[in-house]
């Protein structure tokens, strides 16, 4: 997307939210269906957006269909509000939804569109989390035919997916999937939870906030409704585990910036070539730094 995109003057009568009302209504209907059938990949007529598919058009269509003048939007990419993609998406919404507020503070947002992360701070019932999804179907790795995948989803037949986990353990002694960990929603449909790390999967489980997932290219919307069971696939004796942030002495690594020992950390290379760890959720990190008690504890 072109960050300097301006609406052509003679077309400035675009409807609020860029999409026309019919398109928005269809997305909303699809959202209702997706909520009614938790985890089901609900097809919809994905619209062309003035940016390449794969840049979050699925998430953006959800956002534009839901946003109203009293909403406050936060957009994150890789945990950060400042990455190019997040800035572009936010700019686009500011441009096409006059009157809407944007924020970087998780707690202030009513709508959060995200790629790669779920915010560290627990979301509330009055918030909606929108995740951008490149590949909606977790079965695509084992079954190329969409028709067959649909039958497998319908019958809850995930034995071949589990066989892949079995093979993973045989080969590597552990399940090596790091992102997009297949997760069963409400005891039936298994979803691709978008490229969030394993660390974020437990946050889907009984989330107070509605979680909507949108795949623009694949034209699918699915949902993890509030308080819904989200269970990552695993074996009884090889349970699901999140990323291990222990250092070589077994101590939990902390954020080099704010000192947090309870956040998902990105590994960075410092100027002197050494490795440093830092919160991937930039708002979480900033808020901790701004806390008055911070100087004392650090």
């Amino acid at each position: 997307m072109n960050p300097n995109y301006e609406l052509p003057l003679d077309e400035a009568d675009y409807s609020f939210g860029f999409l026309d009302e019919f398109a928005k209504r269809e997305v909303r209907r699809t959202i209702l269906k997706a909520i009614a059938i938790p985890g089901y990949q609900t097809p919809y007529a994905s619209r062309e957006m003035p940016m390449g598919r794969g840049f979050g058009t699925g998430g953006l269509q959800l956002t534009l269909s839901l946003i109203g003048q009293d909403d406050t939007l936060k957009v994150i990419d890789q945990g950060s509000d400042d990455s190019v993609n997040a800035v572009n998406l936010r700019h686009f919404v500011e441009l096409t939804c006059p009157g809407v507020d944007t924020t970087e503070r998780t707690s202030e947002a009513t709508l959060i569109q995200s790629r790669h992360r779920i915010p560290e701070v627990e979301l509330s019932e009055s918030q909606v989390l929108i995740l951008q999804v490149p590949y909606p179907d977790p079965l695509v790795v084992i079954e190329p035919s969409e028709a067959k995948r649909k039958v497998m989803h319908g019958e809850g037949d995930y034995s071949r997916l589990l066989t892949k986990l079995y093979e993973d353990i045989v080969q590597f002694d552990e399940i090596t999937i790091s992102h997009r960990y297949p997760t069963r929603i409400n005891g039936h449909y298994v979803i691709d939870p978008s490229p969030i790390p394993r660390y974020d999967i437990p946050r889907l489980h009984r989330s107070k906030a509605l979680v909507l997932l949108g795949a623009g290219r694949e034209k699918k919307i699915y949902a993890v409704p509030p308080y819904t069971v989200a269970a990552p696939l695993a074996f009884d004796d090889v349970p699901f585990r999140t990323e291990d942030f222990s250092d070589e002495h077994g101590a939990r690594r902390t954020c080099g910036r704010c000192g947090a020992d309870d956040s998902f950390l990105d590994e960075l290379i410092a100027d002197d070539g050494s490795k440093v760890w830092q919160c991937s959720d930039s708002d979480y990190c900033n808020q901790r730094l701004a806390e008055p008690s911070h100087e004392v504890s650090a």
Binding site: D157, S159, R160, L162, T163, K164, Y166, E167, I169, V170, F235, D236, D237, V238
Partner: peptide
């Protein structure tokens, strides 16, 4: 998938979910 994985697949279809037992 491996020979063992082929058998695992069938056991997983019949709802066994203990890796050690499947193996």
């Amino acid at each position: 998938v491996s020979a063992g994985g082929n058998i695992a697949e069938r056991l997983l279809m019949s709802d066994l979910s203990h890796y050690g037992e499947i193996r």
